[in-house]
């Protein structure tokens, strides 16, 4: 996996993570390296686009709330976050983890934070898939009586 794909992976995972779960794991991981804001958390929107017919020309579907921020750790690593919703603390943690993942603490963060988040997310998806699966139907077409 390229460096970029890896970073996309953890940034997406952090953004999709439930805020409460992320905060709990972050506190438990105790990452306390100091940082300075490059851009303090700011709430705004992203215009979500769909495609005509699902595959064609883009159109504007509507907006979603997001929070973004950027910071620099004392070690010099720069972290970015743009996460769904209006939770500034979640955005801050996501940016601190993004920066931390570029330094010596990456393995620790991966074990303490990213791995459990990924596992919980995969489990939620599998439970959801099982529920959907239970409602899978086979429709039979009946032969009609009239001729």
């Amino acid at each position: 996996m390229t460096e970029q794909a890896e970073r996309q992976g953890w940034m997406g995972l952090l953004a999709r993570a439930p805020a409460a779960e992320l905060k709990r794991l972050w506190q438990a991981a105790g990452g306390a390296e100091g940082f300075a804001w490059l851009r303090p958390p700011e709430v705004g929107t992203v215009m979500v686009r769909g495609r005509t017919g699902g595959t064609g020309a883009p159109f504007n579907l509507g907006e979603m709330t997001v929070t973004r921020c950027a910071l620099r750790l004392e070690s010099g690593a720069v972290g970015h976050a743009m996460v769904q919703g209006r939770d500034r603390e979640k955005a801050e943690i996501a940016a601190r983890v993004d920066a931390g993942m570029q330094g010596a603490g990456a393995a620790g963060l991966r074990a303490a934070l990213l791995a459990p988040l990924a596992q919980a997310e995969a489990q939620r998806a599998r439970l959801r898939a099982a529920k959907a699966d239970a409602t899978r139907v086979d429709f039979f077409t009946m032969v009609r009586g009239e001729d």
């Binding site: 705004g44 929107t45 992203v46 979500v48 686009r49 495609r51 883009p58």
Partner: peptide, 12 residues
């Protein structure tokens, strides 16, 4: 709210 960006078109 300020608008930061537009998303990539969704792949439904």
């Amino acid at each position: 709210l300020p608008r930061f960006a537009a998303s990539r078109p969704l792949d439904t």
